[in-house]
Design a binder for these strands. Structure first.
Lengths: 343, 343
DNA sequence: TTGAAAGCGTTACCAA
DNA sequence: TTGGTAACGCTTTCAA
């Protein structure tokens, strides 16, 4: 259990110097095909696995990257994003011998400290920056720390490497879908304004409506939670006469749309007959609730894959361009339908 | 950016040997109070942070522990457990200079490989084993690998260190609650039988009913998903006359209970008037749906805290006893009520 | 092509 | 109490 096999053992067994073992096993030139074979064979027989610690110290690399999630646990729990995103990250990290360190900072200051300490003791070679905020202080921080980083769904002009999935097309498709169904009175439930993606989605919604020559209607701030959707439904629907209510509502994520749906039902408003509701994300739960939720489906797993690829490239200093993955797309289910006929 | 401060720099600045710096900064004896002060001061001025890599190699420790989640991403997404569990882990890891590596293996074999490679290159000093399965192969694996490990919610007789939160009391409370409401026809929706906690919960349910002298009723296998709850509702309720249906159902987790609730509503069965439904977990969502879900609330965050504490102790070889945290407790909300009066 | 040796940044042992 | 020095396990440079 205790005495693990080291490069010295392999060298001894193969009857060569440890430097040759290192070269051979890392596919570097300068080793004859014959010796290489002998070394590989010896390593195999001994079950040699290079020690990450030795490699780390020598190579000045941690072979680890970090993700600091700065949301409160409840949001993390119910958010489908991170599970898939992390899954995607792993698929590219693992084959390259990298691993992911996950940290959670519930408060912004705490989050910054996490990044700081990850950098200070060189625990990671790079980090992901997700859930970007407006004027996000993490940007300046990683620059100051010289810590390679990749932003997820950053705005244009983001100063670091970034991977993005456009929401514009999907939201435009949603608006066209609703307009085609005859809707004219719209409303939008945003996410918390401190996150840039909340603003991105709202803007895409407003722009598409304006492009269609229709009034944007009410915009109420939500918080990405089920509860927030319930509250938004109260504000937009309760106590309003049918012809004063919006007939088509987009919530900026699925969870809040599902809350919205639930409250609408309680208020006696039928979906989609009296009201159309759509979300954003494409979480599984949306296809189980009744009516099934129309949404704009994102692909967090793919985002994770590309973010990881980009981060490793950034770390290696290989030429890097931002990556745009295929846009999120409209998925029509049963929570949207023809606009109710006024009478 | 590149030339970081090392122990050598501190030693030079303080005019002492590096061994003294090491001793002083690690609060080891053998350094005079005076020198210690000088060293600490020098370190502070230089902004010295010990290199994890150097420490790792020398101390033969990774200062990292691992969690390999072996569920498919969707379950991870919608499961409230891991977000809080990980949050709890972090609160004890962080102050002790440890970090968490998160890996995901969707298939069992893959999961085992993850553990194997974590151990092979000594990336972690120990691992958590959660979502224990029946005859879980990970137990033998970590033993064979000599990898310190802590089991989460293990059965009695578990051969490794374990942290547990008893579900028995809470489920018994639930049964007493239902019995007190006059229910006599029960049913239970389990989790996947390959997980031991699914069996644990079902057994607690059956035992409590038997203790009350009541028939256990139908037991149908679910899968912990919303969808599974819907399917279970179909099997237990659809096409059955009111007096042939159970009047009180426990689903083995909240998510499936919520699915069950939704389908019951679609079938025209009123909850709690015609039927009482309860879940297990205590997720936030349960308090937002209507009717609000009666459940047995667990505290995954606390479980994470204790699991991490125990794992670090196991790694340090300090005397270790299993930890039992406060049992999960019944939380009565509005999805349970008096048994319907037959007529 | 091969091998010896110098790092990498700590900790820990042992003289002084 | 101090300081020198040998590990720890690898990569990399430079002679041979």
């Amino acid at each position: 259990m205790s005495n693990r096999v080291t490069i010295v053992d392999v060298a001894a067994k193969a009857g060569v110097a440890i430097s040759s073992v290192s070269s051979a096993l890392n596919n570097r030139p300068g080793v004859s095909e014959d010796t290489r074979r002998r070394i590989v064979e010896a390593a195999r027989e001994l079950g040699f696995v290079p020690s990450l610690r030795g490699r780390s110290l020598s190579a000045k690399r941690a072979f680890t990257v970090g993700l600091v999630v700065h949301r409160d646990p409840y949001v993390l729990e119910s958010d489908p994003f991170f599970g898939s995103f992390i899954g995607g990250i792993e698929t590219v990290l693992d084959p390259r011998g990298y691993a992911l360190i996950l940290q959670m900072g519930s408060e912004p200051v705490e989050t910054l400290d996490r990044y700081r300490s990850l950098a200070a003791n060189r625990r990671v070679d790079g980090v992901f920056i997700s859930d970007l905020g407006v004027d996000d202080p993490r940007i300046a921080l990683v620059q100051e720390l010289g810590l390679p980083a990749v932003g997820v769904n950053a705005d244009p002009g983001f100063p670091l490497a970034a991977v993005r999935q456009s929401h514009v097309e999907g939201i435009r498709e949603l608006v066209e879908h609703l307009v085609g169904l005859g809707h004219t009175r719209f409303a939008h439930v945003t996410g918390p304004h401190e996150f840039i993606h909340a603003g991105q989605r709202q803007r895409a919604w407003s722009d598409a409506l304006e492009a269609a020559g229709l009034p944007v209607g009410d915009i109420v701030e939500g918080d990405f939670t089920y509860e927030g959707g319930v509250a938004a439904a109260d504000r937009l629907l309760a106590g309003r006469a049918p012809d004063e209510r919006p007939t088509a509502v987009m919530c900026s994520n699925d969870l809040s749309a599902i809350g919205f749906l639930g409250r609408a039902g309680e208020l006696g408003i039928r979906v989609p007959d009296d009201l159309s509701v759509a979300g954003f994300d494409g979480i599984e739960l949306g296809s189980y609730v009744r009516p099934m939720l129309t949404t704009v489906a994102t692909t967090p797993r793919l985002l994770g894959v590309e973010a990881a690829r980009l981060l490793l490239e950034t770390i290696n200093g290989t030429a890097v361009v931002d990556i745009d993955i295929e846009p999120a797309r409209l998925v029509v289910r049963s929570s949207t339908g023809p606009a109710p006929q006024p009478r």
